[in-house]
Structures are given as structure tokens and as C-alpha cells.
């Protein structure tokens, strides 16, 4: 159903995730865009800032709230060639988290590097 673009244009896409995972649908539906977007062969990066870092917390189990545990999808992103995941160190530390608390391999970067990542991107999605 999804048609590939024929233009051959490759842009730098950045998905900025700033929401915690289960209280609202934004994080889940953002991930659905990432998965569909992967088929378009753009240059994709994901940034986790503010409460967005909670999306990557390991051991999430939604069985008792009866919602979809989409956190498992992060581990599968590699198969979609989505490999650039960046976490802002300040956001992580201010929430008492360490890299070990996260479910997938990410690159932890400081605010100045995050600033550069945002500036260097061409299309930025916020959900």
C-alpha cells in the first residue's frame, strides 16, 4: 500500500521524542512513523530528549494495563536500518537513569552535540 518515492531525494530526517511512553499515545504512534519511514530510504536519526528517555527504559511490561508494549520495537529497529539513536545526557541524568537502564544500544550525547544534531537535520518530526 505504501508507494516508494521515485524522486531519489535523500534527506536527513530527525525524529525528536520528548514524551514518556504510556500516558499518551504520542510515543507509540511516533514509532509507527519511524517504521513506515524506514522504507523510504532516508537518512534517519532518532533523538530522545526530556521524558522521551523513559521510552527506552528496559523491562517495560504493560501486561497489567492491557496496552501494547511497543518498547520491544526499539530492539527491532536495527532490522529496519534505523541505527542512529541519540539520547541527551542531561535528560537521562536528571531523571536518575544510566545507559545501563536502557533497553537498546544508544549513543549518549551532551546538549551541545544534540544541538548540532538538530541543526544538521533537514526534516524534523515532533509528535
Amino acid at each position: 500500500m505504501e508507494e516508494e518515492l521515485e524522486s531519489g531525494v535523500v534527506k536527513k530526517f530527525l525524529y525528536i521524542n520528548r514524551r514518556a511512553p504510556h500516558g499518551t499515545v504520542y510515543a507509540h504512534e511516533a514509532l509507527e512513523v519511524v517504521l513506515i519511514g524506514a522504507a523510504f530510504e532516508q537518512d534517519v536519526s532518532l533523538a530522545f530528549i526530556d521524558d522521551g528517555v523513559f521510552q527506552l527504559k528496559k523491562d517495560q511490561d504493560t501486561s497489567e494495563i492491557n496496552t501494547k508494549n511497543f518498547s520491544k520495537i526499539f530492539a527491532a529497529l536495527e532490522m529496519y536500518d534505523v541505527e542512529k539513536l541519540y539520547v541527551e545526557r542531561e535528560s537521562l541524568e536528571s531523571r536518575g537513569l544510566k545507559e545501563d537502564d536502557l533497553s537498546v544500544d544508544v549513543k549518549v550525547i551532551d546538549s551541545s552535540e544534540m544541538k548540532k544534531l538538530i541543526t544538521d537535520s533537514e526534516v524534523i518530526f515532533n509528535f
Partner: peptide
């Protein structure tokens, strides 16, 4: 919300 705060932290 912290949107402005974060914007100011990460603005070029």
C-alpha cells in the same frame, strides 16, 4: 511545561 526551557537549552 518544559518546552521553552528545552528549546533554549538546545537552540543554536
Amino acid at each position: 511545561k518544559n518546552s521553552l526551557e528545552t528549546c533554549l537549552r538546545l537552540i543554536d
